[in-house]
Design a protein around this nucleic acid. Structure first.
Lengths: 213, 213
DNA sequence: AAGGATTTTGGTAGTGACTACCATATGGCT
DNA sequence: AGCCATATGGTAGTCACTACCAAAATCCTT
């Protein structure tokens, strides 16, 4: 690795760190990118070359955690489905736990800034579709022409993402008393044992109380 | 209702319709709010009074569908949990089906414009938290001091939202051959019968023959 | 119908995120 | 040293969005 890439990583990290400082001190909305650029002692153009939007300054770490887990999963094609899903969930949680403070800050900013929340949800959605794309390859190809496999994969990926999200939201609120992975396993057990109320598949909703508007 | 409110509704709808026209013709990114305001023959200030962001021009219909379903659910406190979840899911789908073209257009725009996708995901997330808040009131209050009820509610609401989202994404792709509600019931059956691979709570490898279809 | 109170509107003047572009500076290589 | 590729900083501009104000439209009372 040459000097060039070293400097690139250094400035990238410098910018992100200064941004977090300013966001935490003054709030996301009351911090301008020019202030961040000035604090990191780079020009605004340079900042935009590293971080195309203001939100990516906040969310890059989470994005990397999710992306790493997906590409790791891609490299384990022999992994059985249920074990694979658990492994992905736990891998994401492990990655996030490498920097609890930043995760906490991200969720704090998301809670108070709509655009950050929106981009966070966007990341989560991308993770889910990527995971679903990978899952569908591991389902037995059905001989019928319908897209049952994609449907099943989407639901399964959604449940996995749902577990991650729910666990993380608990974890960021009580980081000291919560073990993310064991909480995730509780969620899995609850799901498998029927401890979560699922929508009823059998119709006959109470006396057909009309839904019209 | 006075003349004032009539005119208000008329201009609101006029603006939204003109916006959809322009978005579909020229794309979201290549349409400015001033163009929309000019097409609807109002000033830009007026447009911003009705729609605080450009994205709300696109997403208001979906937001209303989700919001209506939640407030309807809130008014049915006697509804049993599993039946209630099904009812909420089906109510959202019914609402969306009142305007399939617009739903399709929304998802098309979301697919090609990141900011629209982000705001859509934000709406979905709000729906899920609102639903979870309502579910927790219907769970038996546990005698323990932990937050098991909130945890369970979050997971259940996430699964419901997941079903809706997955069904809608299939439905908008093939609106003619898909019946949203029956597809949702298929999803519920799959979930209840173990047809969806769930993450394993233990690392024990299980048979995957159940996932054949 | 006439008046004033209230709401709605359109315009002005901004701020700030983000883009396209170009000249300059810097690290990598022969 | 000298050439090439890349990184940087600055300029000028677009556009979403805000704060604010004066004028128009609607309403409500007498």
């Amino acid at each position: 690795m040459g000097l060039r890439e070293v400097k690139r990583e250094r400035t990238r990290r410098l910018i992100a760190d200064k941004a977090f400082e300013l966001f935490n001190d003054n709030g996301f909305g009351r911090t301008t990118v020019e202030q961040i650029a000035a604090a990191a002692e780079v020009g605004p153009s340079t900042l935009y070359r590293y971080f195309p939007t203001k939100e990516t300054l906040v969310l890059e770490f989470v994005e990397d955690c999710l992306g790493d887990a997906v590409s790791w999963f891609r490299e384990q094609p022999e992994l059985e489905l249920t074990a694979g899903l658990q492994a992905v969930i736990e891998r994401v949680l492990e990655q996030l736990e490498t920097n609890p403070g930043r995760v906490r800050a991200v969720f704090d900013l998301a809670a108070q800034t709509a655009s950050v929340s929106a981009h966070l949800n966007e990341l989560i959605w991308r993770f889910r579709t990527d995971l679903a794309d990978e899952l569908v390859l591991r389902l037995p190809t059905n001989n019928r022409a319908d897209n049952r496999a994609e449907f099943t994969s989407a639901l399964a990926a959604g449940i996995a993402m749902n577990i991650i999200e729910t666990v993380v939201r608990v974890w960021v609120d009580t980081p000291d008393t919560t073990d993310a992975k064991s909480l995730a396993r509780q969620a899995m057990s609850l799901l498998r044992s029927g401890g979560i109320p699922l929508p009823a598949a059998t119709y006959r909703v109470s006396d057909n109380s009309r839904y019209d508007s």
